[in-house]
Design a protein around this nucleic acid. Structure first.
Lengths: 143, 143
DNA sequence: TTGGATGCAAAAGTTTTGCACGGTT
DNA sequence: AACCGTGCAAAACTTTTGCATCCAA
């Protein structure tokens, strides 16, 4: 929790109650959350949905959280930007999101930068499939 | 163009004027298009936006087009589902989308399936950076 | 002819914004 | 005190849906 305060200070952001709560919620989340999910978890704090969005936007600009768009979900989801970047294995049946521990793309960005002349900032990799439970139920893709 | 008709027939879909136009537009597109972009390009055909959405949804269910959500854009974009799957290099400055020709993940899905017990259906990889032109202008990420 | 396709309008869902007030530094 | 943050309401934007009509098979 001290660390979170430090992060905010380091980025020149005020430490408000809501800001701290949102960031801490994301830091402890198992998987990325949408603005609305964050809002619902913080309803008892009497926070406003606009405040959630405004803080997520700001935290994103300061690189404290990442803004993601995963397939099959039109909403934007947010995750704490840990120094170790993560990839996800998304179940198309039950929508469960499982972090993938190691990145299979080490070294690839450098090669691509050489080929294209782009300055590569990062990448996003999501893998889709069906978890063991959903394989049994033989659920079909919701597309 | 014959091929497109065949695809529709093979999936048991009626060949309507709008359906053919949308699919052909996507097939020839250099990069994925949003529903609204498709609508604007087809305005002179006096098509309705709902029709665009409904067709995209249907074509997606039949695996003729893919539904994508790229980072930095909350809209859903659609691409023709060619047998060769594609990845994209997205410029965070000018939003240009460049296809990446070869997939750096061959073999990875099998390994992951073994590790997790998931049935892997596919993956999505997008790489983000700044194109040579935007590197000069030193544009900042729009987040 | 019949079921799917379409246009139109309205609704639903998500995200942004204006403005007045309140809180942090 | 000054500036940023917040709540509230409204707007903007994206996507879906109900219903009457039209069209492809």
């Amino acid at each position: 929790m001290e660390k979170i305060c430090d992060h905010l200070k380091a980025k020149g952001l005020k430490q408000t109650r809501h800001r701290l709560t949102i960031l801490s919620l994301l830091k402890n989340a198992e998987y990325p959350l949408s603005a609305d999910e964050i809002y619902l978890q913080l309803k008892n704090e009497s926070i406003n949905l606009s405040t959630v969005y405004r803080n997520l936007e700001l935290l994103g600009e300061k690189d404290l959280v990442l803004k993601l768009n995963l397939s099959g979900d039109s909403r934007t989801v947010y995750e704490y930007n840990s120094p170790v970047h993560r990839h996800y294995l998304v179940c198309l049946g039950c929508k469960k999101i499982l972090p993938i521990e190691h990145c299979p793309l080490s070294g690839y960005e450098e090669r691509l930068a050489d080929e294209t002349g782009y300055a590569i900032v990062g990448h996003k990799l999501d893998v889709y499939g069906y978890c063991p439970a959903c394989r049994k139920n033989e659920k079909k893709p919701g597309f």
